[in-house]
Design a protein around this nucleic acid. Structure first.
Lengths: 360, 360
DNA sequence: CTGAAAGCGCTTACAG
DNA sequence: CTGAAAGCGCTTACAG
């Protein structure tokens, strides 16, 4: 592979001049410039980014450590992060922690070894010492979605409180009173916050959240299934299961069907994190939707601000409730009768986005 | 950040000795070794991978260019690729081409500039000249899933022919005769191959594939919707729509529902590429399943073989048919009656994997 | 076993 | 405007 020396030789100039042309340095004669450019084209020369990084001490690369790539929420987040990063001239390397602290550590370490310019993290558990050390040592860092309290790192996230309140209002309006939640890991902020928001909203309606109606999940489908089975085994099972993320909702759906029960007739189901597939499940699932793409973009902007010496900003964006059919007919729905599944399906999915009736 | 010089100073040895300790070079006295290790720990030293790469001319990094991260098939592929790469001591940088040739080019270029040790590609269109030049210039490369004929690059992919034949047998057995396909881009191998396999299988049953029943999609949901609308507008619409990938199948499902039609009663639906969500759609979708994880791992092994000087091997793995309810009751099913949706649902999803009845 | 030195491919003050 | 030279942080023949 041709190096800058080859180009210099071919163009009959020094490597310094080649470098200047390549970096658009103003003081280069137009004659030298054309000769260099010609040589570059002739040799198919491409600057070695590794060498450039070593010299300039910047890699134009961002690290993104997420907790589970297979979760569509994080896939979409990753996608929007890459998009915005690319627009700003950065590449991104994704590390998938798979909800495993050791893997999270592995990726943080690898990313740091590669001297990425900044790190975007959605911490899996309380966050590793490694990560916190890096933040303290001055590695530009921004938390997305999940964060770690008490650390001097900007946070870009969604606030689901009012959407969860809307959800509880919706459920209450449907006459539902026994509401249960499948929680995420308490060590994650999203895990604990969603339970808190739910409990607070219930309290506003004079409802409580008994321990029996609080199941401990880990954001993966299997835990949703397990917890739901526990709920169904209760002498008095809940009327609604609210899963703190989309994968656990799917597990819950499996568990419910495995008993031969129907959603929403026998038990209602709702989820935190809306994903395109929820329009297509049977029935379509009511969910709290985060502005995922916007979160990813805002996180990148905050991180790049930090990297390039501008003051970074924490951002909190509102989530919103998307009502579908998994909790029963909304009292505000125009169809007063218990419609047949078929009719409702057809009506509810004229266009997938049109299905999203936000709460007033 | 501490450099090797700092460690050397702290340990009272030369940088050469530090380097030897770090790289497990045998000829280091145990005294020197312990002093270096102590210094490394004291300073929290981590070798700079950029500098190391420049010197050794290897980055221990693989590039993976896929056509669409939001497609669960590719997400899973990416995940398995990263897993196997990690096991072999490599990192992977993912580039999402979003089915756009220009983006594919962007990522190939960026990856090459970063001097990745090898490239895993699922080409978006016919493949860019850039990519082919790189392959010819000796960049270790392996195609996964899609490939480009006539290039000296190992291919790791699934063969769907027999699964597609099983699908057609299944449909034929259900009495269906008017079968249509939503094709992928003809420029991609998977786009053209799947149509060919379908046509061949139809021929075995004395059925033809008229032009009107061949719609041109682009592997994205929206195209599935559009093509399906065209099918439904036909004077004699097909009885079955087979989508060449999972996203187009979802688009088809939308289009069908938008007309107030039911699957499978009014029209049957099947897809290439099985994904976890297909168990949860209404109805669960019959699909041709690729051994995605195995493909990803095999691709990495082939690439690393190539990188490390061993002869790489092309691999073709069989896909298999997974029958669900979107084409109607299988004639081999035990329930002879037209079961109510509810009962079937409950019975069919006792466990999500138990639903997968492979064709005999 | 150990260290001084060269060199990977760049960028960038410095001098002219 | 241009080039010689230093240096980024490593690894590795070479000499001892």
């Amino acid at each position: 592979m041709a190096s800058i020396k080859d180009v210099a030789a071919e163009a009959g100039v020094s490597v310094a001049t080649v470098s200047r042309v390549l970096n658009d340095h103003p003081s280069v004669s137009s004659d030298a410039r054309t000769r260099v450019l010609r040589a570059v084209a002739a040799l198919g020369y491409r600057p070695n980014a590794v060498a450039r990084s070593l010299r300039t001490d910047q890699t134009r690369t961002l690290g993104l450590v997420i907790s589970d790539v297979l979760n569509p929420y994080f896939t979409e987040l990753a996608r929007s992060v890459e998009e915005e990063a690319r627009a700003l001239g950065y590449s991104v390397i994704i590390g998938n922690a798979d909800e495993r602290p050791d893997l999270q550590d592995h990726h943080v370490r690898t990313l740091l070894d590669r001297r990425i310019d900044g790190l975007l993290v959605s911490p899996t558990d309380g966050g590793s010492p490694l990560m916190l050390d890096a933040a303290r040592a001055g590695t530009p860092m921004v938390f997305v979605d999940r964060w770690i309290p008490g650390v001097e790192v900007p946070v870009v996230r969604a606030d689901g409180q009012s959407a969860v309140r809307d959800l509880v209002a919706h459920l209450y309006g449907l006459g539902l009173r026994r509401l249960a939640i499948i929680a995420g890991p308490a060590a994650t902020t999203t895990g604990s916050e969603r339970v808190r928001a739910f409990r607070t909203a219930l309290a506003e309606y004079g409802l409580s959240l008994p321990d029996a109606y609080t199941g401990q999940g880990d954001f993966q489908a299997e835990s949703g299934r397990r917890v739901t089975e526990g709920f169904l085994d209760l002498p008095e099972p809940p009327e609604v299961v609210f899963a703190a993320d989309n994968l656990m909702a799917l597990g819950a759906l499996d568990a419910i069907r495995a008993r031969g029960l129907r959603v929403p007739d026998d038990i209602a189901l709702a989820a935190f994190d809306d994903i395109p597939w929820f329009v297509h499940t049977d029935p379509p699932i009511t969910a709290v939707a985060q502005p995922t793409g916007e979160l990813g973009r805002a996180a990148v902007r905050a991180l790049v601000d930090r990297i390039e010496g501008r003051p970074p900003q924490s951002v909190t964006l509102p989530a919103r409730l998307v009502v579908r059919r998994s909790c029963g007919e909304s009292p505000t729905a125009t169809t007063p009768t218990t419609t047949t599944p078929t009719t409702t399906t057809a009506a509810a999915t004229t266009a997938s986005t049109a299905t999203n009736r936000s709460m007033p």
